[in-house]
């Protein structure tokens, strides 16, 4: 791998503009009531924006394989934390005992 990959200014500016467009879309969509779809669009756009920053601004696209592994791995660890914890709360009502917050 090359240790010094110089990304062109044009690419950086293009990414910046893409981030601006995505921000505009996410704000616009927020004012429309789409039900649960609002969350999906909102998070989808946030993830897309973060991915652009990670890949280009943070040079992960041009780095050794280990770096994307670490980035993806730590997000995966976050999912373990979220997934297992929330699975506790989601299944509490299954016995029909009810919970203080009515789920």
């Amino acid at each position: 791998m090359s240790s010094l990959h110089v990304v062109s200014v044009k690419t950086y500016v293009a990414i910046f503009l893409a981030l601006m467009v995505l921000t505009a879309i996410t704000v616009a969509v927020a004012f429309v009531d789409l039900g649960p779809l609002n969350n999906i669009v909102m998070l989808g756009i946030a993830i897309a924006k973060a991915t652009l920053v990670v890949l280009i601004f943070m040079h992960v696209r041009y780095s050794t394989r280990l770096i994307p592994l670490i980035a993806a791995g730590s997000f995966f660890w976050l999912l373990i934390l979220f997934g297992i914890t929330i699975s506790d709360y989601l299944t509490r009502g299954w016995l029909g005992a009810g919970t203080p917050w009515g789920h």
Partner: peptide
């Protein structure tokens, strides 16, 4: 080791289903 922490919560209000897993 990261997947098993709930066994410290067996007698909390943790769901029985989560406890079993």
């Amino acid at each position: 080791g990261f997947l098993v922490w709930g066994h410290h919560l067996f007698v909390s209000s943790q769901s029985v289903y989560a406890g079993t897993v």
